Amino acid sequence: MLKKILTYGAIAGLIAGAPMLALTAWADRIQPELGMVIGYLTMLIAFSTVFVAIKRWRDVEGGGVVRFWPALGMGLGIVALGSLIYAIAWEIALATAGSDFMAEYAAGVIAERKAQGASAAEIAALTAQMESFRAQYANPLFRFAITLTEILPVGLPVALVSAGLLRNPRFLPAR
Rank of each mutant, 00 (worst) to 15 (best):
G108D: 07
A103I: 00
A10K: 05
P153M: 10
G98P: 05
Y105A: 11
F101N: 00
G77H: 03
F68Q: 00
R67C: 00
L148Y: 10
L152F: 14
A27W: 13
R167P: 03
R170E: 15
A71K: 03
P32Y: 08
Y86P: 00
V60E: 13
L76I: 13
R56E: 14
F68N: 00
G117P: 10
A115I: 07
L41T: 15
I5L: 02
R58D: 06
F133T: 11
G13E: 12
W57S: 14
K55A: 13
T127D: 14
W90Y: 03
P157R: 13
G108S: 07
G77S: 06
A121V: 06
W26Y: 15
I30C: 05
A46F: 08
M20L: 15
Y86S: 00
M102N: 10
L34T: 15
L172V: 13
A46T: 10
A121F: 01
T7H: 05
M102V: 03
L165M: 15
F144P: 12
L6V: 14
M130F: 04
G35L: 07
L172M: 14
P140Q: 08
I38E: 05
I85N: 02
R134M: 09
F101L: 08
V66Y: 00
W90E: 09
I15L: 12
F51P: 13
P140H: 08
W90A: 00
G73L: 03
F144L: 09
L166G: 13
V66H: 02
S162E: 13
M20K: 09
A22Q: 03
E61F: 04
A107Q: 14
R167W: 04
A174W: 14
A125R: 13
A10D: 02
M74C: 07
Y8G: 07
L23S: 05
Y137K: 07
L148W: 12
W26K: 11
A71R: 03
V79T: 12
T24Y: 04
M43Y: 14
M20N: 11
V66I: 14
I92K: 04
L166E: 12
Y40S: 04
G62D: 11
T147W: 01
A22L: 15
F142E: 01
R56M: 05
